[in-house]
Every structure is written in structure tokens, then in C-alpha cells.
Amino acid sequence: MTAAAAAGPAEVLATVGLTARYGSIEALAPTDMHVEDGELVAVLGPNGAGKSTLLRALMGLVTNGGTVRFRGRPLPRRDPVAVAASGVVLVPEGRGIFGPMTVAENLELGAYRLGRDKAEFERRWTRVFDLFPRLKERLGQVAGSMSGGEQQMLAIGRALMADPKVLLLDEPSLGLAPRVTAEILETLHRLNQGGLPVILVEQKAPLALKLAKRAYLLSVGRIVATIDPREITSYDDIAKHYFA
């Protein structure tokens, strides 16, 4: 055990002065944030605040600057494949499932990096169905023909097939019925309780704050506040930023 781990929860993933730009427009001001072992961190903010951009910059999907540190080592800056292979896995906005392929194929592709380790594949495969029993009934179904909630479950299941060391989610509740959202967030809670660090980007702040240990509030491309959910008595402070 390292000294840091002995002293307390260790930093798993951190951004140091991470920026993002689209052409000549700066979409994300230098941003410092981090997630520690076993933590669920929420990133909140109104539409267009730069929440997705933060995740995309972190993964190296957009032109970015600064550093992303993963377990103390810098991650490659413009190489999403390498970032994903290192265990930082993003469930993107809009889910990004392979619509014309079957549920089984989608899940198999999640474990693309695993290679031919049958036993490990089985372990991940069972874990996914343990969390999302509904996917098991749909294995042969074309993924794009499922409901939005099921597609979101598949997207998360596929990410879990990669055995992520940190799981990033971009608005998993988008376009879903409240009941389905609750079900998915409950699963995320379970995963997090199992020790998986999670960064959850959400527009629906109250939902995310129920699960989060810490929350960053983003507005116009920068972090404007770090929130401890336990200290929140009213949502007025947050609302202020939303309507700023």
C-alpha cells in the first residue's frame, strides 16, 4: 500500500489546467478537478456550461491543453483510444451505442481490449447482467430497436465490459422517464458503492447531488463552485448559477 493510500483516499483521476477549444473559441477555461478512490463526483451546470466539453477534453476527443493525470501519470492528450485503454471509460452523451448491431455484439465490443481471456470475460459478462438483468433477455436484439432506457443500460453495460478504473457518464438521464432515470442512478450508486470511482455529468442537479460526495458547478466554461452536498439546504445557490 502506498503512503498516499494509507493516509486517506488517493486521487484517481485529476485534470490540471485542462482546456478545450473548438477552432478559435475557448470552450473550457483552465480547469482543475479530481476524483478520489471510491468517490462519485458530480459535474453540474446549465445547458451549454461546458460539462460535456470537460469530459470530451478529458478523453482527448477535442483539441485540448493542460494535463489529465491518472493514478499519478499523465494521460496522452489527443488519443481517446489510449485513454480508454488505460481504464478511463466514458459513456458519451447520446449513449453512442452501435445501433445496427445486437446487444451481445455491443457488449462484446466493450471488452475489445480484453483479448481472449475467457474467464475474465465471463466475470464481466455476469456482472453486467447482475446489474441490468433486462439486457440478458435482449442479447439477440438489434440495439437500436430498444427503448431509450434500455439503450442507456446497454451503454453503461458496454462500458463496464471494459472493466473501467474510472467511469465517466455524460447525462445518462437525458430523455429518460423519471422512473428509468431513478433505476439507472440506483445502479450507478451500487457500482460506486462497490468501489468504482465515477464522474457523473448531470443537468438535473438534485438527482446527482443525492449520490455525489462532491460536486463541481460549471458555468460558461469554468468551475464556479465546488459543492459539498451535505451542506446544501436549498437549491437557491445552484439555481443562481443556472439562471445567471
Partner: peptide, 25 residues
């Protein structure tokens, strides 16, 4: 095959494939 499926995945959504660690290039 694993590679064949990965190629189909890249055809469907290059970015999502990269996010699964599939070597797109």
C-alpha cells in the same frame, strides 16, 4: 470475428468505437 465486429463498430460510430478502446486508425 472480434476484428470484423470492431470494423463494423468503427463504421457505425467512429468516436464511440474509439471510446471503447478500439484502435480506430
Amino acid at each position: 470475428t472480434r476484428t470484423g465486429k470492431a470494423m463494423r463498430a468503427v463504421a457505425i460510430d467512429r468516436e464511440a468505437a474509439a471510446l471503447q478502446g478500439i484502435p480506430v486508425s
